[in-house]
Design a protein around this nucleic acid. Structure first.
Lengths: 204, 204
DNA sequence: TACACTGTAGAACGTGAGTTCTATGCTTGC
DNA sequence: GCAAGCATAGAACTCACGTTCTACAGTGTA
């Protein structure tokens, strides 16, 4: 697809990428020249024109630092396809798409301790991304805190939430554990929902 | 920590953030003025000086578009602490740290189908991040492909890998499934490891 | 009332920075 | 050997852009 880059062009392109990463803004033509040892700004412009023609960059004419990097992978990761965790007979379909790990901007992160959500495959050591502002629906996994000043004050727990007739059920995903029932009154006054789990992340 | 922002300062700060997100470079003082309806560039400079004093931005003096956003969360997410998935008696310790979802640059993504890694809590629909270049060790979860031209050619599978005496064991994490054994010779010629799973991601 | 603080406008200065033009070596293929 | 193409230098031009200075109006406080 893309035309090959000559050596000076490749160096310039690499420098622009590096400069943007480091400074949060594109370099000027003179800064590029200084970095790749080109004395003339006109000469830099010449190479930029080629880079533009080859599709590596775009430029906003007459604007300072007007270089726009194309293909600057926007913090997304390519989804190559699906993979069989089962029998090795399935193939890669080309479900071309992008997984944007940067889409989580409102969330904060908690690291999970314990086994109570294990049946939902949230394991000890996993990270959960919690959205403070999301709407809570029945069956959502939430972070709930008991706020009254008792022995377990400030205690937070990770559970699925279900609104029943006169009470709230906080349901662990672990068959060996019992749900917690909280009356509506107690719920309103003594408990607080810190947010809803929108994603799980695990490192190996 | 941070001083409050006055209305014009908040508008300017918001505009800078938005502009950077959209254009990949900071705005000029005149562009800021145009956006927040300030006629004088000196006036914009006045507000920027305050924003700098209050710690919201830094500036590289005399450089065009020299505004540097502080706290521009560098695609990382704050880890607020740990949370008990078990009994609601545990508390938030302040394990202040940052989870950098942008650290995955070499990996590509596959979406998992099937249940064969379920005992490792990799569920149907989860995304696995696969590193092509990582060193493979015993017990790692890998993407393996059978490359010979048979019925299941090109088939990829997600398994834990173990090197045994004269064979390779591809072990599913599902007690109802049996491991696949591959002889060393067959392994070298007919199989290919596409990479090692470095992380798991699940959206709700 | 006077002083301090914030918000605003206008103008002017000096340099930053994109652009354009002319010239000159290098290869490489015909 | 000559044309074509790439890489390079230097200079000049024209705005873009950060900075500085003066002035003034509104608001709150001592």
């Amino acid at each position: 697809m893309e035309a090959e880059l000559s050596d000076p062009q490749a160096r310039i392109y690499a420098f622009i990428n590096e400069y943007v990463r480091e400074h949060g803004r594109p370099p000027t033509n003179r800064e590029i020249g200084g970095a790749v040892d080109i004395q003339s700004t006109g000469h830099v412009d010449y190479h930029l024109t080629i880079l533009e023609k080859k599709g590596y960059i775009r430029r906003e004419r007459k604007k300072s630092r007007g270089i726009i990097l194309m293909h600057s992978e926007p913090r997304g990761l390519r989804i190559e396809g699906t993979i069989a965790a089962g029998v090795p007979l399935d193939i890669y379909p080309d479900a071309r798409d992008t997984l944007d790990l940067g889409e989580h901007t409102r969330e904060y992160v908690l690291q999970v301790r314990g086994q109570s959500m294990i049946d939902d495959h949230i394991a000890d050591g996993d990270y959960v991304l919690v959205d403070r502002d999301a709407a809570i629906n029945d069956g959502d996994i939430v972070v709930a805190t008991h706020t009254v000043a008792t022995a377990d004050a400030g205690a937070a727990t990770l559970k699925r939430i279900y609104k029943e007739q006169d009470r709230i059920r906080l349901q662990p995903a672990n068959s060996t554990m019992d749900p917690i029932y909280v009356s509506k009154a107690e719920w309103d006054h003594e408990w607080e929902v810190q947010g809803k789990v929108t994603a799980v992340y695990r490192r190996f």
